[in-house]
Computed example of a mutant assay.
Amino acid sequence: MDYCRREQLPISVQCYPFTHDSQSCSAIKKRGYSLPIPPTIPYLVPPSIPSQEPYIQIIEEPTNKIIRFRYECEGRTAGSIVGMSSTPTKKTYPTIKICNYNGPVVVVITCVTVDQPYLQHPHKLIERGETNNSRFGSFVKRLRPDQRILELQFGIQCVKRSDVRHSLLQRQQRNIDPFNVGFDHLNNLALINLYQLRLCYQAYIKVDNNYVSLDPVVSSPIYGKSNELTITRLCCGFSKMSGGDEIIMLCDKVSKNDIRIRFFETNDEGDVVWEADATFQNQDVYKQMAIVFRTPRYRNPEVRHIVQVQLQLVRPSDGATSEPRPFEYYPNPAVLEHVDNLVNNNNEPLDLVISSSISEKEPISDVLLAKNHLKTKHTLHHYYEQHCQHQRF
């Protein structure tokens, strides 16, 4: 029974459909490779295989220690998964080898569930400082003709529970399904364990003008921290640029001696461009369920428009973090005083002041929004949108 899988891979290597094709199998046999009967259940580590058959061999498994998965909003800072034999003095990483084959190889790695059947897992693989190899949650690498061993240095980017469906739908649309088990788990997302997964290794070897898939192999389980911190509610989601505003946070199971509140800002590439900690004392942590803190000063307190940042809880002892929450910084009161003078001196209606300020290239709508806080937020945005149809900054 022929079992090899044939595929003409696109240049972008974005989808990986599998089909049985006897012509491709014949092409492999002509090159001197023999084909075994396929196993009925995918195996974790290749069993004893005759030396002439190409296959994927796991040389170094990922660590069995609990690691921390990173959120997307934390930027491309996911630490690399270390290998099982890694030590503080000598780092190792998950490593695979393509055995008994010489020629072009495309390696594809995705996250799958721990238990069989190996379903696609919503979490993503991300390479630090690299964008070309990470696509739709998978890691794709073209090996050089003389390269047979691949050491993998990437991290795991966790997907929020609310984004699990979208992540899986992306894989389904691109037919990323190594074991052809489908996506029925889309109908029962609550059963997906977000803190356990395996790595699935695939390799495509080139035979004539076609790419043929070797049997996929999965790694040992990888475990993420399940005792993540949680922010339940904030009494206020904004602060002035100079900081110092008092805010009450409701949270869950925090230790007053082992907790930080981190504010941070990222750019369009996901890199952290600013971060600072809120200030509070041990006595400001109430029964592990609430923290009263003061906001840190923004990096440029003279900014005269709203700045979107994020905040999260951080546990220094193990590096655990909560899911980040959005937060806004507004212009300082000195800017608001300037607006008051502008309104009082001109003695004009609010909409005329906004119109005049826009023409003078002053972000007055943001300033007024800061002054009136949430009560008139929607009204001011309405004024701003109306006038900006005719005048732009």
Rank of each mutant, 00 (worst) to 15 (best):
Leu168Asp: 07
Ile291Asn: 01
Asn346Pro: 00
Asp271Cys: 10
Asp215Cys: 09
Tyr16Val: 08
Gln116Ile: 02
Ser213Asn: 13
Gly270Trp: 08
Asn180Thr: 07
Arg294Lys: 15
Asn344Cys: 09
Gln308Val: 08
Ile156Glu: 00
Glu246Tyr: 06
Ala290Phe: 05
Ser317Cys: 04
Gly270Ala: 07
Tyr329Pro: 08
Val339Phe: 15
Lys206Asp: 06
Ala278Thr: 02
His338Val: 05
Thr376Ile: 00
Leu44Arg: 14
Leu214Ile: 09
Ser226Thr: 03
Thr87Val: 02
Arg171Ile: 00
Leu350Arg: 06
Asp351Tyr: 15
Ser322Glu: 06
Thr110Lys: 09
Ala278Tyr: 08
Gln202Thr: 07
Cys25Asp: 13
Leu189Trp: 06
Gly103Ala: 07
Ser86Val: 03
Ile28Gln: 14
Phe154Gly: 02
Phe183Lys: 07
Cys15Ile: 01
Ser167Leu: 04
Lys141Pro: 00
Ala78Arg: 08
Val212Thr: 12
Leu169Met: 14
Ser34Ala: 11
Ile259Glu: 07
Lys377Phe: 11
Leu186Ser: 05
Ser355Gly: 05
Arg128Leu: 10
Asn257Ala: 04
Ser51Phe: 01
Tyr71Trp: 15
Gly83Lys: 05
Gly244Tyr: 02
Val343Asn: 01
Val272Thr: 15
Leu119Met: 09
Tyr286Gln: 05
Phe136Ile: 10
Val105Thr: 09
Asp271Asn: 15
Val212Glu: 05
Leu169Arg: 13
Asp268Trp: 07
Leu9Gln: 05
Ala334His: 09
Ala290Met: 15
Lys124Gly: 00
Thr113Asp: 10
Gly182Asp: 01
Arg392Ala: 10
Arg233His: 12
Thr40Asp: 08
Arg148Glu: 12
Ile67Gly: 00
Leu197Met: 12
Gln157Ile: 05
Pro221Met: 10
Thr113Ile: 02
Pro296Cys: 04
Asp163Tyr: 08
Leu342Thr: 11
Arg144Ile: 02
Glu7Ala: 12
Asn64Trp: 06
Val353Gly: 03
Asp184Leu: 10
Cys388Ile: 12
Leu234His: 05
Ser24Gly: 13
Val303Gln: 12
Leu380Trp: 11
Pro94Leu: 07
Phe139Gln: 04
Pro349Phe: 04
Ser355Cys: 10
Cys4Gly: 01
Val307Ser: 11
Ile58Ser: 03
His305Met: 10
Leu189Pro: 03
Gln288Arg: 15
Asn332Thr: 15
Asn188Glu: 12
Asp366Arg: 01
Thr113His: 03
Asp115Lys: 13
Arg260Gly: 00
Pro349Tyr: 09
Ser359Glu: 14
Ile41Gly: 00
Ser255Cys: 11
Ile126Trp: 02
Leu197His: 02
Ile149Ala: 04
Ser34Trp: 04
Val353Asp: 04
